[in-house]
C-alpha cells in the first residue's frame, strides 16, 4: 500500500520557481500556459493490509503537523 501526498504553494504565496519555469516554457514556445505552481510530492509506503481509514486519519495529522506548513502550503492525500 502507498500513500501519496501532493503539496502545493497556496495561491496567495509568491512562487518564484513557478514564475521562472512559466517564463522558460514561454521562451521555448509553449503557448497557452497561464500558471505554473511548483510543490512537493511525498510517497509513503504502508504495510500491506493497513486500515485505509485509520491511515488516512494519521496521515492527515502528519501532513498538517510536519509534511506541509499550513501557513504557506495546501496538500492532497491519496491512499492506494
Amino acid at each position: 500500500m502507498k500513500a501519496k501526498i501532493i503539496i502545493t504553494p497556496k495561491k496567495a504565496v509568491l512562487d518564484p520557481q513557478g514564475i521562472t519555469v512559466k517564463t522558460a516554457l514561454e521562451h521555448m514556445g509553449y503557448t497557452g500556459v497561464t500558471g505554473v505552481h511548483i510543490g512537493k510530492y511525498i510517497e509513503i509506503d504502508l504495510a500491506p493490509g493497513t486500515d485505509k481509514a485509520a491511515a488516512s486519519k494519521a496521515l492527515n495529522e502528519a501532513a498538517h503537523k510536519l509534511l506541509s506548513n499550513p501557513v504557506i502550503e495546501d496538500y492532497r492525500l491519496e491512499i492506494e
Binding site: 504553494p9 509568491l14 520557481q17
Partner: peptide, 17 residues
C-alpha cells in the same frame, strides 16, 4: 520559531531565487 508556532507567518524562498 515560525515552524514551531512560536512566531506567526513563514519564511519562503527569496523572490529572486
Amino acid at each position: 520559531l515560525t515552524e514551531a508556532g512560536l512566531l506567526p507567518g513563514a519564511l519562503i524562498r527569496n523572490r529572486d531565487l
